[in-house]
């Protein structure tokens, strides 16, 4: 495994917060806050894939939507490197300021059936971002679109067809081609393979890996499926109730997790081998409610290692080995179980 190293990260997120107000009553008074994202920091290097993983409501999608500025963050910095190498804080920009940066960040969506306009041909769908960004010459655009189709391994004969003629996997290839049209510096992929059948999912995972090697792409991969995450990521950040609880290089996170939530998450994944019917850690209760999270460590009510201190003290995300950070008061003393690799 090669971990790309470049001094300057493509994206650096610092202390990101997104709180949604809870309004009640006739006057819509704010009676509380949902802390969907609560002090999240990470960075992604050029050519790297960072996966944000966690269960529903953990804040992974809200984080990615803040980065794309589909929504405005409550506070924090989102430093994005533009083509001149300058870091621009996307968090503070208005619509006009964002426009030149939009082309640098692209998105691959989860649902290939609803994310493509059914009235546009494939050529129009992939060519649209080129046109919007000022590529007026039809011939030039056609050449570029044909190149993009080749990149995602679709026959050029498909150019004038409409999305309904394609399977889920083919549509996801079209979505990837469109995302690549403007040579973006960052691609945010939110659950890009979770709606696909297994036999097709593998093709798209491989395509994303190949394109990254070929074009030096940088991915922020948002997913709930740890198996897929293992196959795509250089590094992984695990979120729980709006916070990152652990982040590490992929292999390290899977083989030697340091946060009890990561351990439980890994042990809950069904392994496709009946001879390995795992001795599972079955967590009690439900995922913490981000509008009313437990005090102290958000995970403590479900944690079998929790002590009195965990109920009151908020653990900070602390680096315990280079590149491996964890927010658990007992991280140093616990010896947790990961999943064996390569067997």
């Amino acid at each position: 495994m090669t971990t790309p190293v470049l001094e300057v990260p493509v994206l650096e997120v610092r202390g990101l917060r997104k709180h949604f107000p809870i309004r009640q009553g006739l006057l819509g008074r704010v009676t509380g806050q949902i802390r969907a994202v609560d002090d999240v920091s990470f960075s992604i290097a050029h050519g790297e894939t960072l996966s944000l993983v966690g269960e529903s409501g953990c804040g992974k999608t809200t984080t990615s939507r803040c980065i794309l500025r589909a929504i405005a963050p409550t506070s924090g910095k989102i430093l994005f490197r533009d083509e001149h190498g300058d870091a621009i804080d996307v968090a503070g920009l208005d619509r006009k300021g964002l426009r030149p940066l939009r082309r640098r960040m692209q998105m691959i969506f989860q649902d290939p059936f609803s994310s493509l306009n059914p009235r546009m041909t494939i050529a129009e769908i992939i060519g649209e971002p080129l046109l919007v960004q000022g590529m007026r010459d039809t011939r030039e655009r056609e050449t570029r679109v044909a190149d993009l189709l080749r990149l995602v391994r679709l026959p050029a004969a498909y150019l004038n067809r409409f999305p309904h003629a394609f399977s889920g996997g083919q549509r996801q290839r079209i979505g990837i081609a469109r995302a690549l049209a403007l040579n973006p510096s960052l691609i945010v992929a939110d659950e890009p393979v979770s709606a696909l059948d297994v036999s097709v999912q593998a093709q798209i995972v491989n395509l994303m890996l190949d394109l990254q090697d070929q074009l030096g792409l940088t991915y922020l991969f948002v997913a709930h499926d740890l198996s897929v995450v293992k196959h795509v990521s250089h590094r992984v950040a695990v979120m729980y109730a709006g916070r990152i609880v652990e982040t590490a290089p992929t292999k390290q996170l899977f083989t030697s997790p340091k946060h009890p939530y990561t351990e439980a998450l890994l042990s809950a994944v069904p392994v496709p081998d009946p001879r390995r019917r795992a001795h599972r850690i079955v967590l009690e209760g439900d995922v913490a409610d981000p509008s009313n999270p437990p005090p102290g460590c958000h995970f403590h009510p479900r944690c079998k290692y929790a002590t009195e201190q965990c109920r009151t003290e908020v653990p900070a995300l602390t680096e315990i080995e280079p590149g491996h950070a964890v927010s658990c008061l007992r991280a140093a003393e616990l010896s947790l179980r990961g999943v064996a690799s390569g067997s």
Binding site: K230, S233, H234, K251, V339
Partner: peptide
């Protein structure tokens, strides 16, 4: 099938 037991990437 992707697996948590696979080598990364």
């Amino acid at each position: 099938i992707p697996s948590v037991l696979a080598e990364p990437r």
